[in-house]
Design a protein around this nucleic acid. Sequence first.
DNA 1: TTAAAATATGAATAATGTTCATATTTTCTA
DNA 2: TAGAAAATATGAACATTATTCATATTTTAA
Lengths: 205, 205
Amino acid sequence: MKRSELNNQVKGVNMPKTKLGLAKMHRLVEAAEVLFTSKGFFETSITDICKAANTAVGTFYIYFNSKTDLYRYLMEKYKLEIRRNLAESIAESKSRLEAEKEGVKCFICYAVKNPNVYNIIWGSLAVEKEMFEDYYVSFAKSYAKALERCGEEIKIEDATSLAYMLMGITNFLGLKAIFEQMSEKQIDYLIESSVLPVLKGGAFS
Amino acid sequence: MKRSELNNQVKGVNMPKTKLGLAKMHRLVEAAEVLFTSKGFFETSITDICKAANTAVGTFYIYFNSKTDLYRYLMEKYKLEIRRNLAESIAESKSRLEAEKEGVKCFICYAVKNPNVYNIIWGSLAVEKEMFEDYYVSFAKSYAKALERCGEEIKIEDATSLAYMLMGITNFLGLKAIFEQMSEKQIDYLIESSVLPVLKGGAFS
DNA sequence: TTAAAATATGAATAATGTTCATATTTTCTA
DNA sequence: TAGAAAATATGAACATTATTCATATTTTAA
């Protein structure tokens, strides 16, 4: 993650201006990620986070105006990470279908390695639902634009609706993969045997 | 909602045994729903809920062992409500595809009328992620069983994977419908022009 | 070198979740 | 119907946790 990407952009988050500060902030963020994943956002106290990061509580508030703002920061972090991964994964694709295949695989693999993305992104509905809506409205917009650029290859009129359906398929298979702790091989098989058939020919006769 | 359905089944929730108690509990639950929707779970205090329900805080703890347990109760309530609605909506269907169509429509309409279902169900990831996993693992199981019973009509081998994909499509279109505050007509059109084409013939050529 | 800016600290304060002793109402039974 | 038992209601007291702030230390830049 390039520092500039998250610099001064997130509401309620004050980016450090020295290496020392950056290191401290990182430790806080990492501790929070671990604790949120194991205990949940509500059960994790700022004291918990600070203890785990070897930091005084006062320091926490230098970088984050509130616990919710730390949440916002994590959300932004995942958003950038996911988008960058996806962009990379589909860069070489020869067709939109191939891009979809690579994108689905990339996302599901990422999800299995970082199951807390769901905790954070979907969990935002219980923290501040505007965060959630912003996230998906903006994601769907980009996705729909990319689909529109492919014209002929797509059989559905409304690119935005298709974008939501594809996000739905990907996200829910990501859930399944997490629940079942799928390996990369299993994910490949899932895509070949279920995703591609549906995308190419539908599910019902 | 029949009282018996939620009687003594939810962990951390003590169902009242008189009309008086039932009425009080209902007021608390309704107040919580309204506040969770407008302010979010995290920002809503028990004092807020009790004020809105004209109740002393002590009374809250007669029915709910904790704020998280009230959350659990709401989740269970929506689960039963959604399943009952879905079961009703597909009862008359002549084919699985028709059942899917009715089910999708039923869910999306319900979502638009009750946008807080997402706040509660997905938001559970930030409250107690086991609640979330239980919810979807159990839902997917039922769904997959229903799909398996249809044999021929289904072109995908793994019914469970298909169940997750269908849940994904439905849930994400439900999101879109909420974001755009779709009318029933718009939902019908969405299903005819996007969902059915994908389910019958796929999205990419 | 030195002032200014950035960072670190934890005790103090404020807000909120939870408990509990006590009072009231309802239900059940003799 | 009377009276005991069970259920429900109450809000002050307590415990935990989010947040603030005055003060100290470290880093930056002139």
